[in-house]
Structures are given as structure tokens and as C-alpha cells.
Write a protein that binds this DNA or RNA. Structure first.
Lengths: 123, 123
DNA sequence: TGTATATTTCAATAATTCTTGTATAGTTGA
DNA sequence: TCAACTATACAAGAATTATTGAAATATACA
């Protein structure tokens, strides 16, 4: 996955309205929803919903299909799975045993820290 | 998970710089990185990195621990797992068989659509 | 045809976010 | 204590994004 794709998806989900839309569509699965249904379900002006749907579509987060005079939107779940893979790519590189540890615990544990390298600030 | 938590995390990852920081920290795992290391690794002004790290910390996406005069940052992977669960909550509600279908295919398939309900636009 | 419906587009304003430079606070070690 | 270093806080301008109302496009149906 390209970095721009990832940031676009995150940008899409960074708004409460778009997050609501996405979660609504996830619940609907393959059935999806038409634009007006989404607007009335969330009690928002249709043109505002359309504005957000356009951005989400451009980011690939949702797909749209014309159905007569309706536009049916569906969540693109596989993209989300790709995104997760992108985020955890090379997770704990070189120390795979840490991955299991991190994933199992409730939060980054107050683990014993390795001492700082003698040469400070080398990348 | 609360909606605000989710939007804050997504907002954090919607910037290319913050996404780079997060992925860098994910790779480092429990070791993490100190602020100056992050800045020089990404070739960015330290105060700009500090600005972004503050937001990420506030969103809970990274944790910070003081280490003498250094501030050591680590990615909060468990939060990401919670976030994914939040997103796919009630996925395909009422039609669990669709979930497997969606997850298996490469993208939302051009599935056969159910006909529109006779009463248009009811939520 | 003509009218109603669904959705999008456009323009304008309000609000937020990003980046840079400068200044401040805290830590280290001589 | 003093000087060097790490990191954050603050302020200002540029840039981006959100919301609303009005207008436009396209489909459906009588």
C-alpha cells in the first residue's frame, strides 16, 4: 500500500461524521445504503453527507454504484485489512517475540528498557 | 471504545509525518525511540516532530517516558487492535455469512443487489 | 411532456491545522 | 555554578478543511 492511500483513509475516518457513515455502512455489509438513507439515518443535510461521501469514495474507503436515481454506497472492508497490514508491517523488526508480547498485553508495558547506546543520537 | 478516541487516532495518522513516526515506532517495538532520534531519522526539525508527537501522545497512539533528558516514545499497538475491533463492530449485522465473503474477496464485489424497498427512503 | 425526487456541485464564510522561528525549561557533566 | 544539549511551548502567517444555502443535473413517474 502506498503512503498516500493510507493517509487518505485515515483522513477520511478522522471526522466524526465520516466515521459514523463508515460504521453505518460496515453494519450494512453488502447491502449498503443509498445516500438519502445515510443522510436521514444520521440526521444530516444531504449535501453535507454528499460532500463527505465524495472524499470517502476518492480515498477508496467506500464504493458507489448507481441504481436508477439512487447512489448506493458500500464500505470497502478489504481496504481496511490492507491498511492494518501496512501499519504493522515490519512490526518489532528483528524482535518478533515482542509482537506477541505487545499484542497480548493491554497496553505498552512498562518494560525494562535497554540502556541508551553510548553514541547518542545516531539514527 | 469511544468515538472521540477513534477520531483522534485517525486524525493522528492522517498526516504523512505522523504516519511515518508511527510506523517507525512500530518497527522499533518495545525499544521505542527518543525524540531526537525520530527527528534525525525523518530529517525534520525537532520542534515540528515534537509538535506532532504531542498530538499523537494525546490521542494515545504513542506513549512517552522520561529517560534523563531524553523522552522515549513507543507505539501503542494494543490501541490499534481496539480500534480495528471498533470499526468492524456489528459488521454485516444480521448477515454474518457476508463477512467471510467480504474479507475473502479482494474488494467489495459487484454482488447481486437486493431490490429497493417499496417505501423509498425509510431509515 | 411536465413535475417531483435524489443527489451533486458551487460559492462563501467559518474554523481548524501546519510550519517555521524564537524563547523557555530541564538535564548532564565538567 | 556554568556551559552544552534535549525537548517543549508559544506566536504568527499560510494553507487546508467544514458547513451552509442556493443552484444544477439526472432519473422516475404520471
Amino acid at each position: 500500500m502506498e503512503k498516500q492511500t493510507a493517509t487518505q483513509v485515515f483522513e477520511s475516518l478522522s471526522s466524526g461524521i465520516r466515521l459514523d457513515i463508515y460504521r453505518l455502512l460496515v453494519k450494512r455489509g453488502l447491502e449498503g445504503m443509498v445516500a438519502g438513507q445515510i443522510a436521514s439515518a444520521l440526521d444530516l443535510p444531504p449535501n453535507n453527507v454528499s460532500f463527505h461521501l465524495k472524499g470517502m469514495t476518492h480515498a477508496g474507503l467506500v464504493s458507489v454504484e448507481q441504481e436508477g436515481r439512487y447512489q448506493r454506497y458500500r464500505a470497502n472492508l478489504p481496504l481496511m485489512l490492507e491498511l492494518i497490514a501496512y501499519l504493522t508491517e515490519e512490526c518489532c523488526a528483528g524482535h518478533p517475540e515482542q509482537c506477541a508480547e505487545i499484542r497480548a498485553d493491554s497496553c505498552c508495558p512498562e518494560a525494562v528498557l535497554p540502556p541508551l547506546p553510548k553514541t547518542e543520537m545516531e539514527s
